[in-house]
């Protein structure tokens, strides 16, 4: 990690011509952007994170605090800037959507929030802990306790039954088989898979697999659930089902849900939508007023519209 940072500081702005140009106007719309200023000269600007949170409309406890996040991938001799100074705060219980086209850097941002990737610069703080600085071991423990994941391609283990798949995060945190099987069953029932508990992923449809995935993400009651294009492989009706399930579950337990998608219809479920273009947050949309409610008429409308085609 240290090396990467070094490479970065060495490459002064002049050298960074290959990186995508930053759009200053876009940066201004992002919160906390007073200091970003291209986001490149702030490697040494280490300040207590708390002080920097000036988001006015949230009094709730911040769950994820991201500051000046920069990620540069080096592919061969070329340096590609995937993230160019991201600042954002996600509060506990908030449903947030990172909306952007492919290649916009939204998935990279999610990966860094989850500690799956190390940033080139900047910090990711979750519940006051700097996860960008954590060792792999600590991260594993941290993910075990605090995070759930829903993936686009479900990522279920093919040789395990639905119960075993759902119980897996519990197994990793040392829960007894009996206990975790019971909890997995409850979770699967909640997801409407009561009759599919002993099926393996290959014996289930995409929607069912994704529901297993959701059950797995929520079974350990994590504080944060990350969903990376959770409906990318699903049809519209299933998409709505899956989205409603995730949203209602996270609402119920006051869990933070971070959804990454390119689909504006999915984004409509979020409280807040971050539009990401070329590695920066181009705009933030407070969606609480025009939000689609779970089981609402809008949802039904979307389904009807999709199926009438």
């Amino acid at each position: 990690m240290a090396e990467e940072v070094k490479t970065f500081t060495d490459s002064s702005p002049a050298k960074n011509k290959e990186a995508p140009m930053l759009n200053d106007t876009d940066l201004k719309t992002a919160p906390l952007n007073e200091q970003t200023d291209g986001g490149l000269r702030q490697a040494s600007a280490v300040q207590p994170i708390e002080e920097n949170i000036k988001d006015p409309n949230v009094s709730a406890k911040p769950a994820i605090v991201i500051k000046d996040l920069v990620k540069i991938f080096t592919i061969g001799k070329e340096k590609v800037r995937a993230l160019a100074g991201i600042n954002l705060v996600v509060n506990q219980g908030e449903i947030v959507c990172l909306l952007g086209t492919s290649g916009s850097g939204k998935s990279t941002l999610l990966n860094m929030m989850a500690g799956l990737e190390k940033p080139t610069k900047g910090t990711v703080t979750i519940y006051g802990e700097r996860i960008d600085k954590m060792s792999e071991r600590k991260l594993a423990m941290f993910r075990q306790k605090n995070m759930g994941f829903v993936f686009q391609s479900y990522n279920l283990l093919p040789n395990f039954t639905a119960i075993d798949n759902v119980g897996m995060p519990l197994a990793f945190s040392g829960v007894k088989r009996k206990v975790r099987d019971k909890r997995a069953k409850e979770m699967l029932k909640l997801c409407g898979l009561g009759k599919r508990m002993r099926h393996k992923p290959t014996q289930m449809s995409g929607g069912q697999q994704q529901r297993v995935g959701i059950a797995r993400a929520f079974v350990g009651k994590p504080k944060i659930v990350f969903a990376d294009e959770p409906t990318g492989n699903l049809d519209t009706r299933t998409t709505i089902e899956v989205m409603e399930m995730m949203v209602s579950m996270s609402r119920e337990n006051h869990q933070t849900l971070v959804i990454v998608t390119h689909d504006t219809e999915i984004a409509a479920y979020a409280d807040k939508i971050y539009h990401i273009i070329d590695g920066v947050i181009s705009s933030v949309e407070d969606n609480t007023h025009k939000q689609i409610g779970v089981g609402s008429e809008e949802a039904a409308e979307i389904i009807r519209a999709a199926e009438s085609v």
Partner: peptide, 16 residues
Amino acid sequence: TREIGIMKVLGCKLSD
């Protein structure tokens, strides 16, 4: 590879 990756993301300890 994929399986190991999933397990790691789900918080499986390296030692495990």
